[in-house]
Write a protein that binds this DNA or RNA. Sequence first.
DNA 1: CCGATATGCAAGTGATTACTTGCTTTTCAT
DNA 2: ATGAAAAGCAAGTAATCACTTGCATATCGG
Lengths: 192, 192
Amino acid sequence: MDETSQKIIDATMSLIRDKGYVATTTKDIAILAGVNECTLFRKFKNKKDIVMNGMEQEKWRGNLTPEIFRNVRWELQPDLEMFMEEYMNRITPDFVKLSIGLRAPQIYDETAPLIMKIPRAFVSSLIEYFQSMEQKGKLPHLDFEGLAMIIFSNTFGFTFLNASFDNKLTSINKENYIKTTVATFIQGIPHY
Amino acid sequence: MDETSQKIIDATMSLIRDKGYVATTTKDIAILAGVNECTLFRKFKNKKDIVMNGMEQEKWRGNLTPEIFRNVRWELQPDLEMFMEEYMNRITPDFVKLSIGLRAPQIYDETAPLIMKIPRAFVSSLIEYFQSMEQKGKLPHLDFEGLAMIIFSNTFGFTFLNASFDNKLTSINKENYIKTTVATFIQGIPHY
DNA sequence: CCGATATGCAAGTGATTACTTGCTTTTCAT
DNA sequence: ATGAAAAGCAAGTAATCACTTGCATATCGG
């Protein structure tokens, strides 16, 4: 990946994040990338190709792999706090906005499965985590899918709302929110 | 509001919901509304005017007023379940998609405050509810803003994820999800 | 029935857009 | 220094878009 192509990709994804795919023109991309407009088409097949290449890059994909679910201490409180924190550190407001900007009819068929990878990874890994906790005798058998969805809906919802409304909806900071949520959750679920 | 104008508004908002504002053309609007394209401009100043008129209508605005917070039984479980259920009944997947489609640079300055009304109403009314419960001696003094955000993030998150991914992320149905969430929450917060 | 109003139709306007073309200049590697 | 590759520049193309115009047709209400 040469430097010019990378500049084009970065400019494109930034503009999509700010204005959406359809409202992002190749002229704007060229200006922001600091290249001539025809250079875009020397490097990429078309506008969509720039995006698809951008989404191959970790930088623009919001990397959240099952790896973080392996750095656990097998204690609910620190582990759940860590999962939520990792999610919020990687799924930044900018990434949320980019995900929204990628919802365009021209590309959504291709971008949607990529966007869905992260929620899927998070939820299924969290279910596995709960199952392992059960096997270790630290949790009774519960509806782990439902519990995973509670944690994830919560995490995602807070992240999205902050990305959309900044602090106009709530002034709670992330760390306090995580602690309160996890404490309430742990206290609320059945224990041995 | 004459019938033709209403047809135009309905067609416009439907297309924005499906394709976003920028990708919604006046030609598509006219076809879907079953009118001639020039009729759009006889009835409305421009494309944006159609949208702004649409957002004045309850049908396209996702009505969620503080009224539902008055039909309470002053018991946490039924009340919280009712709040979540009312939200999910009114904020349908279609409304979620419309909200996303309205995020276009050309109109977002105007639509964003309208979109934010609902989260704001929900969170602040929920805070008031918790405060009233405290006054009635049914809850100790707690960080009600934090708790309201937990409930709302959860409700919003689940709603949004279902709107975006259908049942590809989870097959949990709404009612079970609400019951589990509320039960866990109530069990998890401090009581007298 | 008839006049007023509403709407259709087709063509058009000016602007914008993604993308192309042909030539020129700059950069890079040997 | 030199040739090849990379990139700039300006103009261009074809299509699309929001919106307009002038005429024709349909509908409505008295």
